[in-house]
């Protein structure tokens, strides 16, 4: 078993490396076709000599293949290059913004999973209750409203009209393990609520519907009826027998949603001026800051791989029938 597990891990890592390699080629070629950063950066007062100096200092005067080989050689030593804009190591720049995004994504996910599973169970167990119908109607709204619009409405409602919560930015941070976290301060929490709610809404609706569908499916199965017949407490029937059976798709979705939130929370980060990775990425694309774009995407690919791995391990814990060989194909 451990042997197959190790083989599976090796296969997974090889796949991840290939994905990263393919991604860097695409980014290099894509950005090269899109435009030349020198045209964006060069100050209007610049003369031709200054233009040439900028291109040379970023290595942009070299042919693309040589730029790429140089990048690969350095990347193998752990150096993803320096940002054209900030003159800082690109990876450090991305990692610096990671806690802000991670904090926001986790807050959104906790909100979505907690409420989603709870409300989903309720709606699944009592499908005919008025409250359940209301929840389901609400979930359709949550799924179909565009995120940026909801974000703007939250700001207009809770910041501009009511004045309860700050409209944008990240609050005070407290350093834990050398990293600043804002959810540990009251000011930080106040700043966190609106963007987290904005990000959570879609996921909440998704998890809720998934949970309800799962419950509706298993609640009539024999084993649930036998569990009931044996006189088990309803809480144990729901909490152990039903929940465990429906959790696999939910864990998958939570894992994927977490990844996509960390990777693609640009819209929410823009609306709420949240200083996370998404905003950095958007700004970097505007100015074709290739090292940062590459570093960001490498980080995102690795994150997806890691979270999928984690989800696979969780499956095995939830359902012993899931084998490693089968899970390997799900990468």
């Amino acid at each position: 078993m451990t042997g197959s597990m190790a083989g599976w891990l090796v296969r997974r890592s090889a796949q991840a490396a290939l994905v990263v390699l393919a991604m860097t080629v695409i980014v290099f070629v894509g950005l090269h076709v899109a435009g030349n950063p020198v045209d964006i950066l060069v100050p209007p007062e610049a003369d031709a000599a200054e233009r040439a100096r900028i291109a040379a200092s970023f290595g942009l005067d070299q042919p693309l293949w040589r730029q790429y080989l140089l990048f690969v050689a350095r990347a193998l030593q752990g150096d993803l290059g320096r940002s054209f804009i900030y003159n800082q190591p690109a990876l450090a720049l991305v990692v610096e913004r990671l806690p802000a995004t991670l904090e926001l994504s986790l807050a959104a996910l906790v909100l979505a999973a907690g409420l989603g599973i709870g409300l989903g169970l309720y709606a699944g167990l009592r499908p005919r209750a008025a409250a359940a119908r209301l929840i389901m109607a609400g979930s359709v709204v949550g799924l179909s409203l565009p995120g940026f619009w909801v974000g703007l409405m939250l700001v207009i409602g809770f910041s501009v009209r009511l004045g309860w919560l700050p409209s944008s930015g990240r609050g005070e941070t407290v350093a834990v393990l050398g990293v600043g976290w804002s959810f540990l301060t009251a000011d930080g929490l106040a700043h966190l609520i609106l963007p987290a709610a904005n990000l959570a809404l879609f996921k909440l609706a998704l998890i809720l519907r998934l949970t309800r569908a799962g419950v509706r499916e298993v609640v009539h199965l024999d084993y649930v009826r036998f569990a009931r017949a044996r006189g088990l407490a309803p809480s144990r029937v729901v909490g152990v027998h039903i929940l465990r059976a429906i959790l696999i798709p939910i864990v998958t979705v939570i894992g994927l949603e977490f990844c996509s939130t960390v990777a693609f929370s640009m819209v929410t980060e823009s609306i709420f001026a949240w200083p996370g990775m998404g905003r950095l990425m958007v700004e970097s694309i505007h100015v074709l800051d290739r090292p940062v774009i590459v570093a960001y995407l490498v980080a995102v690919v690795l994150l997806f791989v890691a979270v999928n791995l984690l989800a696979d391990i969780l499956y095995r814990l939830l359902d012993p029938r899931v084998g490693t060989a089968g899970a390997g194909r799900g990468a």
Binding site: V155, I156, G163, P166, S167, S168, I271, A273
Partner: peptide
């Protein structure tokens, strides 16, 4: 001075008193 690229976020920040 906070750096807020989104125009809507800046206007909202002004109107909400932030």
């Amino acid at each position: 001075t906070r750096f807020i690229p989104d125009a809507g976020a800046r206007v909202a920040g002004l109107l909400s008193g932030d």
